[in-house]
Nucleic acid binder design. Sequence first.
DNA 1: TGATGTCGGGCGACCG
Length: 722
Amino acid sequence: MSTAFDKLARPIQKWVRAQGWREMRDIQARATHVLMDSDADLIVAASTAGGKTEAAFLPLLSQILDDPSGISGFDLLYVAPLKALITDQARRLDDICREAELPVIPWHGDVPASVKTRAIKRPRGVLLITPESLEALFIRRGLELPRLFGATRAVILDELHSVLDSERGIQIRSLLARLEQSLNRLIRRVGLSATLGDMELAKAYLRPDSPGEVREVVAAGGGAELQLQLRGYVTGDNDDEGPSATDAIALHLFGHLRGSDNLVFAGARQAVEIYSDRLRTLCEKERLPQEFYPHHASLSRDHRDFVERRLKDGNAPTTAICTSTLELGIDIGDVTCVGQIGAPFSVASLRQRLGRSGRRPGKPAILRQYVVEAKLTPTSNFSDRLRLGLVRAVAMIELLLEGWCEPPKRGALHLSTLVHQILSVIAQRGGIHAQQLYGMLCQKGPFRQVDTQPFLDVLRALGHPETALIEQADDGLLLLGAMGEKLVEHYSFYAVFQTPEEYRLISGGKELGTLPIDNLIAPGMLLIFSGRRWLVLEVHDRDRVIMVSPAKAGVPPLFGGDPGNIHDRVIERMLDILEDQNRPIYMDATALELLEEARSHYAQLQFGPGRIAQLGENATILATRTGSIRTTTLALALRAAGFTVQTHDGFLEVFGKDGTPLLIDALAALASGEAVNLFTHSPNLVFEKFHPYLTEALLQQDAFSARLDTAALAELSRSILG
DNA sequence: TGATGTCGGGCGACCG
């Protein structure tokens, strides 16, 4: 059998030799065999910097060189969710493609129009594009798609794991399905991904019609040794001497991370600001050069570029205190250690974060997990007593060590994104019949969960005279309505996700970043932002601008954010941890003490064979043993029955009122499958960009499909009753 | 209500 290297085209072999590689990496060799010997779709899963890009491109480019199509159009299409990733990859591919004399065209909002015009005139080579820019191509050049993509051999989807479950993932899949339909043929799909929670689901996402035929190349696991510590801290110790929990963590970070490159994930932007401020102050006090910098999405591009460059250069030691901004595949080089403050929200993201460290041979990956718990008082809530943050951190670490991570959820209707794609198709083609549209998006596209009836309901909602997004001509053709035209015309249409309104923060003519408008800001106020302290000078509401100047003190602003979902498996593990007696060796003394406290309080609750515990006179605790979706569903059902309910990780705290039935009776009714209206208290159902155009009934269906699980309600109630 | 975050963009007018 010939080796993978032998299979590559001459110019590509030449490039490989020029790299001085002794041999191709295992995943590259395996991907080469699959891609050169078959026309199967493929998923390549490996950690960041695992050589995935080359694994896909070396063989795909070889095929193009060995067998030029002679047809017009881009030879390869690469779709990535970040502009920075496209810029990075364009640079790497440029090098390979120079040898092959194929153009590489990065295409996103910051790419000059001249580059785009040239590429459109004579489309060939590799097109690297964001989903939004691809959407714009469909809308603005819908009729030219065959000319632009007639020659396209394959589409490479980078960071597949990050879009599997999301609005943007559905958008990408819809665009690809539409492209294939307009070309009247399939285009091979190659997904590049970090470790996946469920390969079979990922295959179904990549190629819904034949997931069984999608091949996979997965990097051998293991690799770096993992060094792990979980440190516990108690806050609210005002009477005691010594630093607060925040200061203590900042001190520990300062002492252990100084002098090397590190990432510290603080969970929320406000926390990033607080820790950056503390660490900056520590550097100043010790008269040491600054090496701790904040990094999150509200900070200016300039500042973020500066931090990323410092990390990548490796010249001066740099620690970024960050949110998930530094989680995805932008290349920032290897870091010594990854810090995580507070329990993460998913094992998948914890794994992705950890993958940033220990990439050099012989170097361990280091995770420093910090958890802050409240100081207990006689009136402390049971959730504080159960130390749910700490227990969640332990559960996540154990699941990480076992190699598990969350699979994507399936079955969501994605009605907001459906609205977007309906408008996009109509704009692309000028008009379309309802039946054809349904076939395109729901039968052949990604909206397969949407039946004819809800689809017609969506069309009706969009065609309602007050909405006027679409209208129907006499011959039945669907056209854009007045509002629809306006919406699609503006560049804000291309993204499928919602963006909040923000102020721009300016100091001395330089933009520091943005603040959500729901912060109440007035002149004279003090702010912490970008890790520094500011005095608010002027607020211009109309232009959404805040002018500031440096100050000596400040408070961190509020940033928004929607809570995400914790997976069932994580909650199950949390309960197991509360019920067993293991003392993980990676926990420090305080963390172990907190864990013992949690266990003894859990034992005191005396859950019986069922999972009900009485707390005081009228509060009842239910252990749901399920994640956010099912726990929230049960909470809504009990609220509908008149109870006051607070939700926690895997627990509900239920209070009866005059006139409410016995909780046991209410649970028994649910267990018997009795119907319940979860929306009696009309909770907010508008979460996504195009939700405001839908009816209440459609919004409820969308919520049922993605955020709630009514089917599990009866079984969950039964198991709680025991 | 107990709680995060991230991501994207076309065109034409104007100026040198």
